[in-house]
Design a protein around this nucleic acid. Structure first.
Lengths: 344, 344
DNA sequence: CTGAAAGCGCTTACAG
DNA sequence: CTGAAAGCGCTTACAG
């Protein structure tokens, strides 16, 4: 492979000049530049990224930590992140953590030892202190998992508001017994969903029943377990808000198995609007997140940090949308129950 | 960040010696080694990967080309690949090509310009010549998309055999009118599936009806289109073999919309055994591929190439499994129809 | 067993 | 506008 000296020789200049045209910086004579460019083309020369990395102390690499790529939410997020990185000459190192703090730590060390220029964290189980201790080594952007006091630039949605909307949807349909299946309350994004849920109930004057609230992981299996667990304790509410589509689908699957009719006996609202939401039967009413856009924006934010731009907006909040399908009853029933509610 | 000279100073030796203990090579005095190790620990020293890369002409980076990460098949494949890479000190650069030959070319150039040590390609639309022209820059492993004459080390499954098994399953259930929804026939893995399908029909003395065969992309939408297309031409067969679960689910969704009962009026077999296969209703009978294992094996194969091991097995073929669920009728019906068939 | 020196392929102040 | 030189942080023949 040709190197900078080969190009210099071919163009009859010094490596300094070649370097200048590579970085199209400073004043280089137009004629000289043309010659160098030609030589580069002739030799199919491309500057060595590795050498540039060593010299510039930049790798043009970004580590992206995801808990589980097989979760379609993270896969799509990655797509957004990757497309934006590519558009700006960066590449993505895939870091699948499996929610394992040790792995997270390993990957964070990529930043410490300058193997990447920055990190995007889409979920973490490590302590906040651990993550913070890496801030000094380079920019870290958080997705979803924002922290209360703007410690990191963050792209997220308003989980509380979204959860409120989901719960309110059920309330407006006349439901007064509403369960909550939510992810680990170690994480703000889940505590926020819980708050939105509680706030909606409070606003509608409906008492919260702690027996119908469960925090767990957010996969299909946990959805099934959720339903079984309710069944074996105080019995079922008439509706449930699940904090992920996978959770919601698990609940629906288990309901079918137990011969509980959805939505008639049990209404279900999900969260994310993944493809499975429109595959499951009945199709899932859910909160749509702008997943790819979240990815794109988080990468943009990181790029800004890398460029040393002053970040005016440290927390970017994107809009969600309640997407109504069939898992909470038909539009007609909704109106009917609204009437019932207003007549009370 | 501490560098090798800092460690050398602290341990009272030269950088050469430090380097030797880093690479735990050659004879270093036990006492000296201990001191150096201690100094490294004290300074939280870790050798610079970038500097090592430049010096060793190795990046410890692997590019993995996937067409579309949001397809759960590729997401899970990636997980397998990533876990194996991590276990061997390599990192993965995510290359989402969107089936775009230009992007594929861009990513292949990572190898040419030594930004990665090797490449795993899980699907490509570029010409074979294009891909081949990059072989001289470093090892390339193919997943699934094997080529006839062992041009690249490959990990795959026997698509023909699997398609034969799927089709035979339908034949044994008594079906004699069987459609085929398959991916682009530009790719061997799809031509193989088609061959398996034809072979099964031939072996059972059933004539092939070209009207019931369609090649397209393999997403949900194409599944829906497939059914509509059949409906608007010669009418429906009694069964269809779809070359991906997404295709199969699309077919089932469209069938529901058109009030065609699955499996009674139309039996469907899928391919991959993704999570959606057990979410759709009726649950999908499908061919299970050992996805994560394919990922792991392909990375191992690449690692072997990198180590200069002579590859004895250039094409690794993993087993698939027909997984029977509800989209082709019950076990009982299967036996009944078997009897019918044998009595003919 | 250990060290001095060269070199991997760049960039950039410094001089001219 | 252009070049010589130093240096990014390593590894490895070569000497001793």
């Amino acid at each position: 492979m040709a190197n900078i000296l080969d190009v210099a020789a071919k163009a009859g200049v010094s490596r300094s000049t070649v370097s200048r045209v590579i970085n199209n910086s400073e004043r280089v004579d137009a004629e000289t530049r043309k010659n160098v460019l030609q030589a580069m083309k002739d030799l199919n020369y491309q500057p060595s990224r590795v050498a540039q990395s060593l010299r510039n102390q930049k790798t043009y690499l970004i580590a992206v930590l995801v808990p589980r790529l097989s979760n379609p939410f993270y896969a799509r997020l990655m797509q957004g992140i990757e497309s934006q990185a590519l558009a700006h000459g960066y590449h993505i190192i895939l870091c699948n953590t499996g929610f394992d703090p040790d792995k997270e730590f390993e990957y964070l060390k990529l930043l410490e030892h300058a193997q990447v220029d920055g990190i995007i964290i889409t979920a973490f189980r490590s302590s906040l202190e651990t993550v913070q201790s890496f801030k000094k080594f380079g920019p870290i952007v958080l997705v979803g998992e924002y922290l209360d006091n703007d410690l990191f630039p963050t792209v997220t949605v308003d989980y509380q508001k979204a959860a409120y909307a989901a719960t309110e949807h059920l309330l407006k349909l006349g439901h007064r017994q509403i369960g909550l299946a939510v992810g680990s309350l170690d994480s703000v994004i889940n505590r926020d969903r819980e708050m939105g849920y509680r706030k909606a109930l409070a606003d509608y004057g409906v008492p919260v029943s702690e027996d119908w609230i469960r925090a767990s992981a957010v996969g299909l299996d946990e959805g099934r377990q959720f339903l079984r667990s309710l069944l074996s304790s105080r019995g079922l509410p008439t509706a449930v808000f699940a904090a992920s589509d996978e959770l919601a689908v698990g609940i629906i699957q288990e309901a079918k198995k137990q011969n509980i009719a959805v939505p008639v006996e049990l209404a279900v609202v999900g969260f994310d609007d993944l493809p499975i939401a429109s595959i499951v039967e009945p199709q899932l009413t859910t909160i749509a997140q702008p997943i790819e856009d979240i990815g794109i924006r988080s990468m943009s934010l990181l790029l800004d940090c890398l460029k040393g731009k002053s970040i005016t907006e440290r927390r970017i909040i994107l809009e969600t949308q309640l997407t109504i399908r069939d898992s909470c009853g038909s539009r007609y029933e909704e109106e009917a129950s609204l009437v019932r509610y207003e007549q009370q």
